[in-house]
């Protein structure tokens, strides 16, 4: 693999090829390995006593790793396709947050406000 070099120079403007480079992929890969290994290590060897702190930290690592994948593997930027890929991504992320947090929020409060006789023992969300 030592014969890889960066090939930034030879893009034709006619084809909108992603801006791939060996260096970019390796940065993304190494960062992903680190960002994956730390959460697994934290959970598998019970590093923190606080469960909530662990959850917050591993969710943070997941978000960072998703951004790393977006930049180094999926080559997201504000320029590609005249900005339309980024626009559709932002739109999707907004919908994603509404779907996820809307569902969790509504269903959590439904569980909490359920009449005691109807509660099936389940006491809420993670």
């Amino acid at each position: 693999m030592s014969d890889h070099h960066e090939h930034h120079g030879h893009h034709e403007h006619a084809e909108e090829a992603p801006h791939s480079s060996f260096k970019g992929y390796m940065i993304g890969f190494v960062a992903s390995v680190i960002l994956t290994a730390i959460p697994f290590w934290m959970v598998m060897s019970d590093v923190l006593d606080s469960r909530n702190a662990t959850i917050l930290i591993i969710l943070g690592f997941a978000v960072v790793q998703i951004v790393v994948h977006m930049i180094y593997f999926l080559h997201m930027d504000f320029q590609s396709q005249g900005g339309w890929t980024m626009l559709s991504l932002i739109f999707t992320v907004v919908l994603l947050f509404i779907t996820l947090f809307g569902s969790l929020w509504v269903m959590y409060h439904m569980n909490v406000n359920m009449m005691p006789s109807m509660m099936g023992g389940a006491d809420g969300m993670p």
């Binding site: 779907t99 996820l100 809307g102 569902s103 969790l104 269903m107 389940a122 006491d123 809420g124 969300m125 993670p126």
Partner: peptide, 8 residues
């Protein structure tokens, strides 16, 4: 979201 609601 479905998994989040049902996960408990």
């Amino acid at each position: 979201a479905t998994y989040g609601v049902l996960s408990m």
